[in-house]
């Protein structure tokens, strides 16, 4: 009898959790729709977007470039180690480039973006909520979804692909520096094999598509978590960690899904 009761209680709790999940999903979708549908006046909108592009994109530039450089260098190093065992060190260029354009570029850049820019977005909006700045704005007749949230959303969607591209490009250069300049792989073979193997439509464009999707999802999660957080310092802290965790997991999960769809033809 006791087992039945605890079972029922667990099922009810699960049910409540599921309903809450859908409720949150609904709120998040509503936020997204409000953000995407209305735009403030064009001149003002541009200025707001500029400011957000700066805080989301430009400020992430350094970490993207440095990480890209290191990852490219490591790829060059490890790739050379393994490929030279099969006498295939000529293939280093294509290995580095393909890994980056298809996977590492969009995914690692997105993870870095989720950690740096998205956590900042959540904290910023959460703090505005906790200090009643959002409510004050509402009471002044200014919709915070349009003025505060929307510019950040579009800035994220624009910045993410740019950051991923910069990451891949810098990483390829890093791989070049380690592979050709330091380890002595043939310069012509490095670029020549790479150019033969990397298809612009299949690899580079697909990578861009991935990073657009990642930018969309990560920014959405960050903005929603900030907007819907509990207006206390603890609430903000929890929302910020949640953003980073959910966004990172979403990136990895979506990456698998997108890779399966894009590259299943072989």
């Amino acid at each position: 009898m006791m087992i039945m009761l605890t079972l029922v209680r667990k099922v009810r709790r699960l049910g409540r959790w599921v309903i809450q999940f859908f409720e949150t999903a609904g709120q998040a979708s509503f936020l997204l729709f409000s953000v995407m549908s209305g735009q403030p006046k064009v001149g003002r909108a541009f200025q707001l977007l500029m400011k957000q592009l700066f805080s989301v994109g430009v400020l992430s530039f350094i970490i993207i470039v440095v990480s890209g450089l290191f990852i490219g260098m490591v790829l060059g190093l490890q790739g050379y180690n393994i490929l030279s065992r099969f006498g295939a060190s000529q293939a280093l260029g294509e290995m580095v480039a393909l890994s980056l354009c298809r996977e590492l570029g969009p995914v690692v850049a997105a993870l870095l973006y989720a950690g740096r820019a998205c956590s900042a977005l959540t904290a910023e909006i959460g703090l505005m909520k906790a200090t009643e700045q959002l409510a004050a704005m509402e009471m002044m007749g200014v919709d915070p979804l349009k003025r505060i949230v929307a510019p950040r959303f579009w800035a994220g969607m624009i910045s993410m692909p740019l950051l991923a591209l910069i990451f891949s490009a810098v990483a390829v250069l890093g791989g070049y520096w380690v592979g050709v300049v330091i380890l002595g792989v043939d310069d012509g073979a490095f670029w020549g094999n790479m150019q033969n193997a990397v298809d612009f439509h299949d690899d580079v464009l697909n990578g861009i598509v991935k990073s657009v999707v990642f930018g969309f999802v990560c920014t959405w999660i960050a903005l929603f978590q900030g907007y819907a957080c509990a207006p206390t310092s603890e609430g903000i802290a929890r929302a910020t960690t949640r953003t980073v965790v959910y966004a990172s997991l979403a990136v990895l999960g979506l990456d698998f899904f997108l890779t399966a769809v894009m590259f299943s033809g072989g």
């Binding site: 354009c101 740019l162 891949s168 490009a169 612009f200 690899d203 580079v204 861009i208």
Partner: peptide, 11 residues
């Protein structure tokens, strides 16, 4: 970066 990837890296 996009141009570099398009021209130098890909085909």
């Amino acid at each position: 970066s996009l141009l570099m990837l398009a021209l130098k890296v890909s085909n």
